[in-house]
């Protein structure tokens, strides 16, 4: 009798664990792409142009209509994400799964097949390392997302020479340099602090400056590892010139960090020109493929917020819609527009 009870108990535990594992696949929380957009929040963040545009009837039976898209929770309301996919490409997915901003959740969701298409960033070395396919943005939904530091005006008033300290390094931040910095941190497992220091030293950073003596700067970054490397670059350049730097990293996404910049919880933040512009102008659609033009418009929009964009870097980091090699082969996907093709 006793052994029977024990066996029954064991069996129950095993059954429960098995049921947990098998139901696991369905557990990450899907959001239907259709219901995600018209939430109460959409009106606040989504572009007026999107709201006004006639609902571009998604071709039913498209490849996308059978696939799941994964990206950061804010993706459904971002112009360069779900909204832009719909408007520019006429692509609507079956489901949207909220993950993270190009981080480990997104990467493992793509690799494990939990999502068919995932949002990563174009400068992310994980795409090559994991043999993933970034779909070509053939209709140019992504605009000039060049890296650009955004600074509070009151900091510039205290330290008018600050742009001259940072701008030379931004000019040297090429696409290759950025991808390599990212690779050193996320693939080779080095620390962002030492990676940034080595890059700055190789690019002629001299220490011992005193122009920033007595000035405190709070350097911020979002919770995306590339941001932390850029934050370290800013922090170390400023420290080399005598500034007192406080690092505030891992602060959340743009929706959280940008208001913090406006309020003065942080003083300087690495931004991406086009995405920042469309965030600040609430999706007015001003960003273009031209970095200089986009940054000029960004500065026009930032002026009333008492913020300034400094010189932009040649390096960009755009949203990249990524699939596995197997998915690309199965649906013959090379370009984002292929997602709108009829499903096989």
């Amino acid at each position: 009798m006793r052994t029977f009870r024990r066996a029954a108990l064991g069996a129950t535990i095993v059954a429960l664990l098995v049921s947990a594992c098998t139901s696991g696949g369905s557990s990450p929380s899907a959001t239907t792409a259709a219901t995600a957009a018209p939430t109460a929040a959409a009106s606040a963040v989504a572009s007026p142009s999107t709201a006004a545009s006639p609902a571009s009837a998604a071709p039913t039976g498209s490849i996308a209509s059978q696939l799941t898209l994964g990206g950061p929770p804010e993706c459904p309301q971002r112009p360069f994400c779900v909204l832009g996919l719909k408007d520019t490409y006429g692509v609507e997915f079956k489901l949207f799964l909220p993950l993270d901003a190009g981080g480990p959740l997104s990467l493992s969701a793509i690799k494990s097949g939990l999502v068919d298409v995932g949002l990563l960033f174009s400068s992310d070395p994980s795409i090559q390392v994991n043999n993933l396919v970034a779909l070509e943005d053939d209709k140019h939904l992504q605009k000039a997302d060049n890296l650009v530091p955004v600074v509070r005006n009151d900091l510039l008033a205290k330290a008018p020479g600050l742009p001259d300290l940072i701008n030379p390094f931004m000019a040297k931040l090429t696409q290759e340099a950025l991808t390599d910095l990212n690779k050193q941190v996320t693939v080779d497992g080095k620390d962002s602090k030492s990676v940034a220091a080595a890059w700055l030293a190789a690019n002629g950073l001299t220490t011992g400056g005193t122009s920033g003596a007595g000035i405190k700067v709070k350097v911020g970054s979002t919770n995306f590892y590339e941001q932390e490397i850029l934050g370290e670059i800013f922090a170390q350049v400023l420290e080399a010139n005598g500034f007192t730097v406080e690092r505030k990293f891992q602060l959340g996404n743009r929706e959280v960090v940008f208001p913090a910049l406006q309020k003065g919880d942080i003083d300087i933040l690495a931004e991406y020109a086009a995405t920042a512009l469309e965030y600040v102008n609430k999706g007015a659609g001003e960003a273009t493929g031209d970095a200089a033009e986009t940054v000029t418009k960004l500065n026009t929009r930032l002026a009333p917020l008492k913020l300034t964009a400094l010189a932009f870097a040649p390096a960009t980091d755009q949203n990249a819609f990524v699939v596995t090699k197997a998915t690309a082969d199965k649906y013959k996907l090379q370009k984002v527009s292929d997602l709108a093709n009829p499903a096989p």
Binding site: S27, P28, S29, T39, A40, A41, A44, V45, P72, P73, E74, Q77, L97, P98, L99, D100, L105, A109, G252, N253, E255, V256, P259
Partner: peptide, 24 residues
Amino acid sequence: AALIAGGGFGRYIVDGFALQDQSM
């Protein structure tokens, strides 16, 4: 659980924070 892409009511909290939608 919502912090690692799980479901449940936490979804509204994580997404509400990401979207800065205080109501949600």
